[in-house]
Nucleic acid binder design. Structure first.
Lengths: 191, 191
DNA sequence: GTCTATAGCCGGATAGAC
DNA sequence: GTCTATCCGGCTATAGAC
C-alpha cells in the first residue's frame, strides 16, 4: 500500500539530490543535508551509511532505468524514427520524474567511488545503442545524410540537460514538451 | 612581444581550469593544483591571491567575451539567420579556444562569491539577446513557426556543452564543425 | 620564487546518552 | 531515532627561512 509520507530515508535521498544539483556533490556537507532535512548530521547515519552511498544510489538507479529503457526500445520491431521518438519520450519522462537526480547523474558521476566503472559501462552502452538507432535511420534512408556524430551529440546533449529546464517550465505540459522537442530535434533531419 | 612560454600565472590558470573541468571547483584542492603545476601549495600564493580569484578570473573573462561578441553581432544590419549563424560560430570559436574555461563557466559559476551577481547579469543579457534574435527570425518569417522557447533551449544547450565534445574531436576541423552544427541546428527550422 | 611548518577551520563519521 | 560531544584528517592561507 502506498502512503503519502516519504520515509525518512527517501526524504534524505530526495533532499540530497536537490542540494547536489544546486552546489554539486563536493560542496554539499552532511551538515547542510541534515539541516535541510531538519535533523543533526549525526542522525543521518541512522538512515544511510555514507555520503558516497547517497550519491551512488541516486546515480546508479537512474542510469539503470535509462539503459533498461533503451534496450527495450531498440529491440522493438519498428522503424528507426519511431525508436528515436520513443527514446526522446523516455528521456523527457525520466527527467520529469527526477530532475534533481538527473543533475547529479550529469554533473557528479566522476565522484562515484565504488561504482564508477559500472556507471561508465552503463553510459557507454546507452550511447552505443542510441548511436546505432541513428545510424539505422540513416542507412534505411529515414534520415537525411547528416553527420551522425554531430546529430547524436546535439540530441543527446539537449536531452541530458533537460533537467535544467523542466523545473522552470511547469506550465508546459509534458505532452507539449514531448511534441515540441521531437519536432525541434528531428524535423530538420527527417526526410 | 609574445613568447612561447606561459608565465607561471598563466600556467596556474590553465591548469586550474583543466582540473576544475575534471572534478569541479570544490573538489580541486590547492595541493592538487600545485602538484599539477609542479610546485608546493604555498608557492601558488606568490602568483595568485586565492582559489576563489582563480575561478572568478576564468569565468568572468569568458562571460565578458560572449556578451561583447553577441552585442556586436546583434547590432549588425543583416537578417536574423545570418546573426544566428554568427552566434553559433562565435560559440564554437570561443569554446575551441578555451574548452576547460567553458566547463568552469558551465558547471562552477554557482561557486563565485564576489562576482556572482555580475556573472548572472552577463548571462541574462546574453540569453535575452539570443532570444531576441530567434524571435526576430520568427517575426520576419525567416524561421518556421516553432516554439521559440524550445528552439532556444535546444540550441543554447548544444552550444554550451560543446566543451565536452570538442577536445575529443581534434580531427574534426573547426570549419567542418561550424558547418555541421549550423546545418544540424538550423536546417529544420529555416524556411 | 620556492620551501617547511603550521595556524585555524571545517569536513565525514563514530560513541554513547536519552 | 535524535541528540551532544568529539575524533581525526584535510582544507585554504599565512609566516618566515633560504
Amino acid at each position: 500500500m502506498k502512503t503519502n509520507t516519504l520515509s525518512r530515508k527517501q526524504e534524505i535521498y530526495r533532499t540530497a539530490a536537490r542540494l547536489f544539483k544546486e552546489k554539486g556533490y563536493s560542496a554539499v556537507t552532511m551538515r547542510d543535508l541534515a539541516a535541510a532535512v531538519g535533523i543533526k548530521a549525526a542522525s543521518l547515519y541512522n538512515h544511510i551509511s555514507s555520503k558516497q552511498q547517497i550519491l551512488s544510489e541516486i546515480i546508479i538507479d537512474i542510469a539503470e532505468q535509462f539503459t533498461e529503457g533503451i534496450d527495450t526500445i531498440t529491440h522493438q520491431k519498428t522503424d528507426a524514427v519511431t525508436k528515436l521518438k520513443a527514446v526522446i519520450t523516455q528521456h523527457i519522462t525520466l527527467t520529469a520524474d527526477n530532475p534533481y537526480g538527473m543533475a547529479a547523474l550529469n554533473n557528479d558521476w566522476m565522484h562515484l567511488e565504488g561504482k564508477l566503472d559500472y556507471y561508465l559501462n552503463l553510459r557507454s552502452q546507452y550511447e552505443n545503442t542510441f548511436k546505432a538507432i541513428v545510424q539505422e535511420g540513416k542507412d534505411s534512408g529515414e534520415l537525411k545524410d547528416v553527420n551522425v556524430e554531430i546529430l547524436l551529440y546535439s540530441i543527446l546533449t539537449t536531452l541530458r540537460n533537460l533537467y535544467l529546464w523542466i523545473p522552470k517550465k511547469g506550465e508546459l505540459k509534458k505532452d507539449e514538451l514531448i511534441k515540441g522537442l521531437t519536432v525541434t530535434l528531428l524535423q530538420g533531419v527527417e526526410k
